[in-house]
Amino acid sequence: MTTPELEPHDSSTPRRAEARATITKTTITPAPGNEPVPETRDKRGIFDRIGKRGGSDGEKELASPEEPFAEGGKLRVVLAFMLSGLALLTIGGAVLVLLLWQQERASGVLTTQLARTWELFDALRIVERWLAFAVLPVATAWIAVAAINVRRATGIRRNPIIAAGSLPFGVIGAWYIGGELVADADDWVGQASGFVLQAVFLAVPLLALLRLAQAADARNRPLRVTYVVSLVYLAQLQFLGGLSNTDQSSPAAEWGPVGAYLIIGGLIQVLGALSANEAARSIEEGTENRFQLRNRFGEALLAQAARGSAT
């Protein structure tokens, strides 16, 4: 009498193999009207991706948005007036030098007229120096307030101390290199090398402001235009001369070119004031738009939850 062979109960039986193949081949198809989202590459530029440290800086959204402080707009207006004042002072110095040059060509300049003109020129230079020193803390304060407003409106963390400190760091670094390397350079190679280093230092506040603009979904072009204009004015100031470093002992034949250079510098300052104001305004508008968007979205969720609880 033969005993029936028992079927082994392991994973190699035909039934289990068939079941395993069925489960392995099972696919999940999207519902009608919901097409799968194709995987796309990140095509943003380096300035748009700057500051992304693997999510550690965080796109953490606050539970509810907070209204931005209005002091940012007031500081921006004050800063625009101060930058415009610097441009007017440069143009005023250019007018004095050109009038002096024209008087010299027409009938000559008396010693008393020459001394009075240069005294007035020195007064403009002193006012410009103090006004330029005052621009830096005002601009630094605006950056700090802008960083705080971006965090309040969007919930994206931007350190206001680092953002605000980038401007003094860049300006002081560029000023130090200009005095130590560019001014003492013996050839154009040394001057060009120093100017490149100055451009690197000035790029530090640009990157910090680009991070704020990215968080606020603001336009980046005004910031880049401001950076280019600042480099052009820096080159004009160091290689052609400005109100602060005009040589009063230059001969009368050079007064015409000196006045022309000052006019050019004043026009560059006007462009810089306009572009800086537009860049600051774009960040403020982007911050306000993000606040309004998140605020309306939160109100819509609350209204939907209230309707759901009522039913």
Rank of each mutant, 00 (worst) to 15 (best):
T2D: 07
L6P: 07
P8W: 00
H9R: 14
S12G: 07
R16P: 07
R16H: 13
A17S: 10
A21T: 12
A21C: 10
A21W: 02
T24I: 13
K25E: 12
K25N: 13
N34E: 15
E35Y: 05
P38T: 15
E39W: 03
E39P: 05
T40C: 04
D48I: 06
R49T: 14
I50W: 07
S56W: 00
S56R: 08
S56Q: 02
K60E: 06
K60Q: 09
E61K: 05
P65A: 11
E66L: 15
P68E: 13
A70H: 09
A70K: 04
G73F: 04
G73K: 08
R76P: 05
V78Q: 01
F81K: 00
L83P: 05
L83G: 13
L83E: 08
A87G: 14
T90E: 09
I91M: 09
G93Q: 03
G93N: 01
A94W: 03
V97N: 02
E104Q: 15
S107R: 11
L110E: 09
L110W: 04
R116A: 15
T117D: 00
L120N: 11
F121E: 07
D122E: 11
A123W: 00
W130L: 15
A132T: 11
F133W: 09
F133P: 02
A139D: 07
T140L: 09
A141C: 06
V150N: 04
V150P: 02
A153H: 09
T154V: 12
I161H: 04
A164E: 04
L167M: 12
G170F: 05
A174D: 00
Y176T: 14
G179N: 12
V182Y: 00
A185Y: 00
D186M: 10
Q198D: 06
A203M: 14
V204Q: 01
P205Q: 10
P205S: 14
L210R: 06
L210Y: 00
L210E: 03
Q214T: 13
R219S: 15
L223H: 01
R224A: 12
R224T: 10
Y227Q: 12
Y227F: 15
L231Q: 04
L234W: 00
L234C: 06
L234V: 05
L237W: 07
L240Q: 03
G241I: 14
G241T: 14
S244G: 15
S249M: 11
P251F: 03
G259N: 05
A260M: 09
Y261S: 14
I268P: 03
Q269V: 05
Q269G: 15
L271N: 03
G272R: 09
S275H: 01
I283K: 00
E284Q: 13
E284Y: 02
T287G: 10
Q292D: 14
Q292P: 01
Q292K: 02
N295L: 13
A300F: 05
A303H: 01
A303W: 00
Q304W: 08
A306M: 10
G308S: 03
G308N: 03
A310F: 02
T311P: 01
